[in-house]
């Protein structure tokens, strides 16, 4: 196996006074879709926040493309292609759809290629001049993903992209993620919708209260009785 694109080595993170992540080791190879699943409060989102540099780690290392980025600032991580679509989408509601997209390319030199995004998400073109706060939940998720793509991600991290969306829209979002992956972007997906996540992912890790309990290929995990009992509703 070649060197992983991203490696978490014994990462410990506290959130408030709680140690939310208790020594996690995890790898993502270039070109993979890796899912991180588990119950609410297991520490999945905390890992993503730490990967984006928004919360400090207690100990351990984050190795990104061979470099130790554990102490990097958030904007340095985004510039290097480690991009996150945060939980709740983090849409800038007081700015227009177009401004949100333009800011997605903030770390990129030159004019952003908005046409490619509008081609993928025609609805965003129609709504370009509107305030992003007026979009529906599904449209906001498309905006969040389109905006993240403009940052030229090499690894796209998504935190609960299905949250609060109707089942049909969830299917649409996952179809988009599949296409993005086919274009060669590596994906690290945190998701409570375990069934959808395992359909998309090559490999998955299962977390419980800050620790990793299971890991393997998505195919193995789908048939694992523990997973079926806990997450897929037997």
């Amino acid at each position: 196996m070649s060197a992983p694109l991203l490696k978490l080595d014994q990462l410990r993170v506290s959130y408030g006074h709680v140690e939310a992540v208790k020594g996690i080791t995890l790898e993502v190879q270039a070109g993979e879709v890796v899912a991180l699943v588990g119950a609410n409060g297991a520490g999945k989102s905390t890992i993503l926040l730490a990967l984006s540099g928004l919360i400090r780690t207690l100990s351990g290392h984050v190795i990104w493309d061979g470099q130790d980025i554990t102490r990097w600032r958030p904007h340095q991580r985004v510039s290097s292609g480690l991009v996150q679509v945060a939980e709740g989408r983090a849409i800038l509601k007081t700015l227009t759809v177009l401004e949100n997209l333009e800011l997605g390319a903030y770390t990129q030199p030159g004019k952003p290629d908005l046409e490619a995004i509008f081609h993928r998400f025609p609805i965003l073109k129609q709504r370009a001049g509107q305030l992003a706060g007026n979009l529906s939940g599904g449209e906001q998720q498309m905006l969040a993903i389109g905006r993240a793509l403009l940052a030229q991600p090499r690894l796209l991290m998504l935190d609960e992209p299905s949250m609060g969306l109707a089942p049909m829209v969830v299917g649409e979002i996952f179809e988009i993620l599949r296409e993005i992956h086919l274009q060669g972007i590596t994906i690290l997906l945190v998701e409570q919708n375990v069934r959808q996540a395992l359909k998309l992912a090559d490999r998955a890790y299962v977390m419980e209260t800050g620790s990793m309990t299971l890991g393997g290929t998505a195919r193995e995990l789908v048939d694992d009785p523990r997973i079926i009992a806990a997450y897929l509703g037997g």
Binding site: S52, R73, H75, V78, V83, Q84, A90, L92, T94, L103
Partner: peptide, 23 residues
Amino acid sequence: RLGQALRAIAESPRAAALLGIPV
């Protein structure tokens, strides 16, 4: 562009940081 980034921070420093804005 600077103004856009400043308005983004005004709304949410966290969201701005995730866009790569040096908050």
